[in-house]
Amino acid sequence: MRVDVHPILGNAPTGKSIILLVDGRPIKAIEGEPIAAALLASGRRVLRHTARHGEPRGLFCALGRCTDCVMTVDGQPNVRTCVTPARDGMVIESQVGLGRWKHLPLEKEE
């Protein structure tokens, strides 16, 4: 649900259209917008599940402070998707709890 026309802000600036691979499925995004905004525009609100109760979580502060929106981006876990710009071809995966490093089994995150 994008806000294409706006009475004060006018038409949405046109950006470069890119593709993100989200849990194996391609979604359209605009280059440079936060990953979480692209996901929301594509209708996806659940970004991850929690460790203890497996509850769904989504965007909460949109300012990079609450860490509810973290996902695994290009193999790196716990990336705040509300402040991380989308780039073409990014691989984004939901995570459970604090997630794990992908492709780098030897590196340990605290």
Binding site: F60, C61, C66, D68, V70
Partner: peptide, 8 residues
């Protein structure tokens, strides 16, 4: 003690 360090 979480990732947000108690901000929320």
């Amino acid at each position: 003690f979480g990732l947000c360090q108690g901000k929320t």
